[in-house]
Write a protein that binds this DNA or RNA. Structure first.
Length: 211
DNA sequence: AGTGCGATTGACT
DNA sequence: GTCAATCGCACTA
């Protein structure tokens, strides 16, 4: 693994056109499923880093486990942006979480990105995470944001436009999608709103039910 | 102004 | 398997 893929400047340029917003499903659960297999692309001065989304969770309208449940606040306002914008927050004082807003403007809901299969510039991710093992580079919501250097500065960015961070077209949508309860929450714990590529080793948590 | 608590991770028994 | 670290923010007063 970990070869000098980061040192091939021409390879990925233009290789990740952004996903048009019109292609994003309009409801949160559909979007959570849809995002499995899509690319998440990060561009910094270091280079273009990307991964394929293999695990998501839906935080739907009226969801007691969702951050939008008690209305808009300074932290969660990005959840109320039109679908396809980034909501980034810090959890437990250490791990940044990346969500994709998922409903029309004014409605607070989102999809948490929980794990990636590393694709472009794996060596940059290894440096960002200070580990080498491919499987662990982006397996977990806080790990993937560290690998891609995502923090609160990217809160609110439009993920349907090429820039510092966006959702790329393509991606490989083959493979069965599993479904389970969400991880780490304390309310509405029984809802099956977590989705993952069943056979991917890059998924973070337990593989329970199939979908 | 003070308090309590996470949509987690990494270290350790 | 268990558990503490860590801090921004929402909530109470």
């Amino acid at each position: 693994m970990g070869r000098a893929d980061a040192l091939k400047p021409g390879r990925q340029e233009g290789g990740h056109p952004p996903l048009p917003r019109a292609e994003l499903p309009v409801d949160t659960v559909s979007l959570a499923r849809f995002l499995i297999g899509k690319n998440l692309v990060r561009e910094t001065a270091e280079g273009v880093v990307s991964g394929r989304i293999v695990e998501t969770e839906a935080y739907v309208i009226g969801d007691a486990a969702g951050h939008a449940y008690r209305g808009m606040t300074p932290r969660n306002r990005s959840l109320f942006l039109e679908r396809g914008h980034a909501y980034v927050y810090l959890a437990y004082g250490r791990a940044y979480m990346l969500n994709v807003s998922s409903e029309p403007a004014g409605i607070g809901a989102g999809v948490l990105i929980r794990a990636l299969e590393p694709c472009d510039s794996i060596s940059i991710m290894q440096r960002n995470r200070n580990i080498t093992r491919l499987r662990d580079l982006a397996r977990g919501p806080g790990r993937l944001t560290a690998a891609l250097r995502i923090d609160r500065r990217l809160d609110g960015v439009d993920l349907c436009r090429e820039g510092a961070l966006w959702l790329g077209c393509g991606g490989d949508n083959r493979g069965a999608i599993g479904q389970s309860t969400r991880i780490g929450i304390t309310r509405d714990v029984n809802r099956l709103l977590r989705f993952y590529l069943r056979d991917s080793p890059f998924v973070s948590g337990p593989r329970l039910l199939t979908g």
